[in-house]
């Protein structure tokens, strides 16, 4: 358990350090879509986003990290119980 808490802290610290260096450029798929004129057509509005500032992104990152940990842990536990 100590290892896991430490690991989560390491991930959050690394994220905090790396966030200012994150590229805002379109990714490979977005760039391809632009070049061939493909547009997305959202049918679902997600409740959260990654925020604008470093602080907002970090908070969102921490929320996501905890949720993803919980969902994956829960799913893995379920396979044991089922």
């Amino acid at each position: 358990m100590r290892t896991i808490i430490k690991g989560l802290i390491v991930i959050i610290v690394l994220l905090a350090i790396a966030l200012p260096f994150a590229s805002e450029n379109p990714d490979g798929l977005e760039a391809t879509m632009e070049k061939v004129g493909l547009e997305e057509n959202p049918i679902y509005e997600a409740p959260l986003d990654y925020g604008e500032t470093w602080g907002q992104s970090l908070v969102m990152g921490v929320i996501g990290i905890i949720l993803v940990f919980g969902v994956s842990y829960g799913l893995a536990k379920l396979t044991k119980g089922a």
């Binding site: 690991g7 991930i11 790396a18 966030l19 590229s23 990714d27 990290i65 993803v68």
Partner: peptide, 26 residues
């Protein structure tokens, strides 16, 4: 299993940080 959760958390965090490649793409 806790380690599995930790890796999932790590992948999520890593995917938040795009790295630039050539031509204004990341």
């Amino acid at each position: 299993i806790p380690l599995l959760g930790l890796f999932a958390a790590g992948v999520f965090a890593a995917q938040m940080v795009n790295f630039p490649i050539i031509g204004g793409v990341s």
